[in-house]
Amino acid sequence: MTTTASAVLKDPLGLHARPSVKLVKLAKTFDATVEIAADPEGPWTAAKSLIKVMKVKARHGTALHVRATGADEAAAVAALVELVEADFPEDGSDG
């Protein structure tokens, strides 16, 4: 089974370096295979690879689609969507 959801990017610069690092760091905390896409039809990109995430080039206002497959897929998708919806906050935690 695969869990999918999306959230709109609020950052004026879209998915740039800082949010990409946060997204990858969070994705790596899950066992599930996690992927993102700027379009629901893809192409889908491995969310645990910073280089690949940076290549997504999702702009401000784009719905970032997240999907995951594996043991903790629902938690992974929920956490990444929450991160995007919160606009990648600077909370001081290292995850």
Score class of each variant (00 low, 15 high):
M1H: 13
K25N: 14
T4F: 13
K25F: 09
P40I: 05
V66E: 01
V56A: 14
S93H: 12
D91S: 13
G95F: 09
G92K: 12
P40H: 04
E90L: 10
S49T: 09
G42E: 08
L64H: 10
P43N: 07
T62M: 02
H16I: 10
I36W: 03
T45M: 09
A76K: 02
A37H: 09
E90S: 12
D39F: 02
T2S: 11
D87W: 03
P43F: 03
H65W: 12
H65A: 01
A47W: 07
A75K: 14
V34L: 00
G14K: 06
A74F: 08
V84N: 00
E82H: 01
L9D: 07
M1G: 13
V66C: 02
T62K: 02
A68W: 05
D87K: 07
K52M: 14
G95S: 13
E82L: 03
H60C: 11
P43M: 04
I51V: 15
A7V: 06
V81I: 14
F88M: 08
E41I: 00
D31E: 12
E41Y: 00
A86D: 07
A47Q: 10
L80Q: 06
T69F: 04
P89L: 08
V77E: 12
G70M: 01
R67D: 09
T62C: 11
M54D: 07
E82S: 14
V8G: 00
A75D: 15
G61A: 09
P19A: 02
V8P: 01
V66M: 04
E90T: 13
V34A: 05
A63Y: 00
V24H: 12
F30I: 06
T69L: 10
G42F: 03
R59H: 14
K10H: 15
K28H: 01
F88N: 06
P89D: 07
W44H: 06
A5H: 10
P89Q: 10
G14D: 02
S49M: 14
P19H: 00
E41G: 15
A37C: 05
T69H: 12
R67C: 10
H60Q: 15
L80R: 05
T29E: 08
E85V: 00
V34Y: 04
S93M: 08
L83Q: 03
R59G: 11
A38G: 15
S20K: 05
V53A: 11
S6A: 13
A71T: 13
D91W: 05
T29A: 00
E85D: 10
P43C: 04
M54N: 11
A63C: 01
A79E: 14
A75I: 03
G92C: 13
V24S: 09
A68M: 07
A74V: 15
V24R: 06
A46V: 13
I36P: 01
E90A: 15
G61C: 06
R18D: 08
A78N: 14
P12F: 09
H65I: 01
A32E: 05
A63F: 01
S20L: 01
T33Y: 00
V66Q: 04
G42P: 08
G92H: 13
I51G: 05
M54F: 14
A58I: 06
A5S: 15
V66G: 03
D94Q: 10
S93G: 11
L80I: 11
G92R: 13
H65L: 00
P89V: 10
K52N: 14
P19R: 05
F88C: 06
D94P: 03
S6C: 12
S93W: 10
R67T: 02
L26T: 12
D87V: 05
G92I: 11
K52Q: 15
G92Q: 13
